[in-house]
Design a protein around this nucleic acid. Structure first.
Length: 640
RNA sequence: GCCGGCGUAGCUCAGUCGGUAGAGCGAGGCACUCGUAAUGCCUAGGUCGCGGGUUCAAGUCCCGCCGCCGGCUCCA
């Protein structure tokens, strides 16, 4: 101890204490009870941690979210100890064991054994034993040499690796519980008996230090909360996520399929999914035309020269499909649409009077993705973007950004997304473009979000090397955020392709270019949308909006008329004429998540009516046919 | 791509110690004519992902490939 003193504030009172005093003693001094740790700045300290920095310390009790950090940290150690007891001290080599958003994991290597899911209950059982033994968890500080010696003796090769990466000025500490000792900065519980409710959930491979050239360890994941109720809630949440899995919904609703004979990551849209997609695409075209975009089509392949000019072959090659040779030329399948849109821009001399030029395409691109990352519709190798490029003058930059951002949010709202997060990414260290360009455009992005009254976060230096951007994330029903829209400036391609326009001064000028997608990839968006709505899409997007169900054969004729009437006003309806009982048909319609079921029996035929059953609303009783049509059209209008 | 797990009927899954394939749902047929989430009976349906190996014998054991799942990694 240095004998130095520092000023600490706890609960509004200031204390002058010796530097390095453990937090627990400090709390005693301040009369703080029940706390299991404290927060100083961003750092969470446990009761044994020495306090070496002045400042205000916020006591943390089990009620504070930060306390979970302590709990989870200790559970990671308890799991490590359990592994060592089960597989033997020398066989288990520990990597890192941090906390996650809802639990913890530990990267471990068990010599001669691959831990499987079946081992988890056994490990859990051992953990509970250790908790029951209620070992005190003790903190010790060691010199670097002592630490290296200790972990060498323990055969903990990875820990030695970590020690070598700890900055020299930092204190090295270990935490000990029973015979188990682990390199750790903390924070930890006072004893293992204080651990809350947990469950080991899964196992995955993870490279040491995230480096694929280094050995791969096994990452054992756990979930942990103080309260068993919270844990159960979390587990239920995962059940819900599983139920809503778009891959399952996609099959049940007959939206899409992936055939291994066609290829991994390549989507086949089934008739129902294709109907939905056509509606989305028609909607997008209409919205774009309304807002002054011009619709274009471009090819799926282009010569290597094009991709050289664009820089894709230099920077994006590992994501591109391999080249195709023909006529002494090399062609590549497009991973992006931009070079083609630029070629369209350059197909004639452009005057400033034409700008802004807004080119829109539902462009299908192919990108090579590692086989291990493919995931239903969310990660694919071929997909269609709602891609646009806006080419404009500097004066137009502000309005264009604002319009694009408003446009994106309006569109997303129509699909049922109402909560957004906006991220602005600014200039990274390595970048192209002038200071002036970055200044003007970054400002335009900020102005747009401010004028629209949106909250936003800034990702300082997080922009692409070619320009700043705005990303829009939407929150889904389960509280997850998905990045969909992106609006990005590009100072690179206009240079590379020498894009120009003729200004008022009769001189050539370099235009500004913006890449912009709203839904991003229609495939990925569809996956997110299906999960967001749990498969029950808003009526305007449902491939089948109405199922007409006759109760008995004698009602079929009337049902045919109802069907024709619905179709004549553009309602997507199906008549279930199968030789099945009414109840079975209703059940099938429910399972297919058809928004409205019209049941027709003697009473309806007599009154020219239909009995309406809404998927969301339940039985709505009898309505005249025209009345039902108006009812449905109102919902369509409102995009409910 | 890497680690681990998995691949059996359209779907979900069972299949013991290696002895030659099973259920439910779905599909087809017949009967039933029904009032808001499954009517009954009958029938068909399989190169056990693909290729190779071990064995008298392989869905089962071994090797390679493909695909899927969970992660890692990547996402100028």
């Amino acid at each position: 101890m240095s004998g130095e003193s520092i000023r600490i504030t706890i609960n509004g009172k200031e204390y002058e204490v010796e530097k390095g005093m453990p937090l627990g003693e400090l709390f005693k001094l301040a009369g703080v009870k029940k706390a299991i740790g404290g927060k100083l700045g961003d750092r969470i300290l446990d009761l044994q941690s020495p306090v070496t920095e002045p400042g205000e310390i916020k006591p943390i009790t089990r009620k504070d979210a930060e306390s979970l950090e302590i709990l989870r940290h200790s559970l990671a150690h308890i799991m490590a100890q359990a592994l060592k007891e089960i597989y033997g001290d020398k066989r288990v080599h520990l990597g890192v064991g941090p906390t996650t958003e809802e639990g913890f994991y530990y990267d471990v290597e068990v010599e001669g054994h691959s831990v499987t899911e079946e081992d988890l209950p056994k490990i859990e059982k051992k953990m509970r034993e250790i908790i029951k033994r209620d070992y005190p968890i003790l903190r010790h500080e060691l010199s670097r040499e002592e630490a290296v010696k200790l972990f060498k003796e323990l055969g903990e090769k990875y820990k030695i690796d970590i020690i070598s990466k700890i900055p020299p000025e930092e204190v090295i500490s270990v935490y000990k519980q029973g015979d188990f000792v682990d390199l750790c900065r903390g924070p930890h519980l006072p004893s293992t008996g204080r651990a809350g409710s947990f469950k080991l959930t899964s196992i995955a491979g993870a490279y040491w230090m995230g480096d694929s050239s280094k050995p791969q360890l096994q990452r054992i994941y756990g979930m942990a909360f103080w309260d068993d109720k919270e844990l159960q809630e979390r587990l239920r949440f995962y059940e819900e996520v599983k139920k809503r899995d778009h891959r399952r919904l996609g099959r049940e609703l007959e939206f899409f399929t992936i055939d291994e004979n066609v290829g991994a990551g390549l989507i086949l849209w089934l008739p129902r999914g294709a109907t939905y997609r056509r509606i989305v695409e028609d909607y997008l075209r209409e919205q774009h035309l309304k807002r002054g975009y011009q619709f274009v089509y471009t090819p799926h392949v282009g010569k290597s020269k094009l991709w050289e000019t664009s820089g894709h072959l230099e920077f994006y090659k590992e994501n591109m499909y391999p080249p195709m040779e023909m006529d002494n030329e090399t062609y590549y399948v497009k991973p992006m649409n931009c070079p083609f849109h630029i070629a369209i821009y350059k197909s004639k001399v452009r005057s400033y009077k034409e700008l802004p030029v807004r080119l829109f395409e539902l462009g299908t691109v192919y990108r090579y993705e590692l086989s291990g990352v493919l995931h239903g519709l969310l990660r694919v190798r071929g997909f269609t973007q709602d891609d646009a490029h806006i080419i404009c003058t500097e004066e137009q930059v502000n309005d264009e950004i604002k319009n694009a951002l408003t446009f994106a949010m309006e569109v997303l709202k129509d699909f049922g997304f109402n909560e957004f997060k906006v991220f602005i990414s600014t200039r990274p260290e390595k970048s192209v473009g002038s200071d002036h360009q970055w200044e003007v455009t970054t400002q335009a992005l900020m102005n747009a979000v401010r004028e629209l009254g949106l909250n936003y976060e800034i990702d300082e230096g997080g922009g692409a090397f070619y320009g700043p951007k705005i990303d829009l994330k939407v929150k889904d029903t389960l509280g997850r955020y998905w990045q969909l829209s992106t609006i990005q400036f590009d100072f690179n391609l206009p240079e590379r392709f020498d894009m120009t326009y003729v200004g008022e001064d009769n001189q050539k000028h370099r235009p500004y270019m913006v890449h912009r997608a709203m839904l991003g990839s229609i495939e990925r968006f569809t996956g997110i949308l299906l999960e967001h709505h749990a498969g029950l899409l808003p009526v305007w997007l449902s491939p089948v909006q109405v199922a007409v169900i006759p109760i008995a054969d004698r009602h079929r004729e009337f049902c045919g008329k109802v069907l024709q009437r619905l179709k004549s006003v553009g309602i997507r309806a199906e008549l279930d004429n199968r030789d099945e009982r009414m109840n079975a048909k209703i059940r099938d319609a429910e399972l297919k998540k058809i928004p409205y079921v019209l049941v027709v029996g003697d009473r309806e035929v007599e009154n020219g009516a239909v009995a309406v059953r809404g998927k969301k609303e339940g039985n709505l009783g009898s309505m005249g046919i025209e009345e039902f049509i108006r009812f449905l059209q109102n919902k369509l209008e409102a995009k409910e």
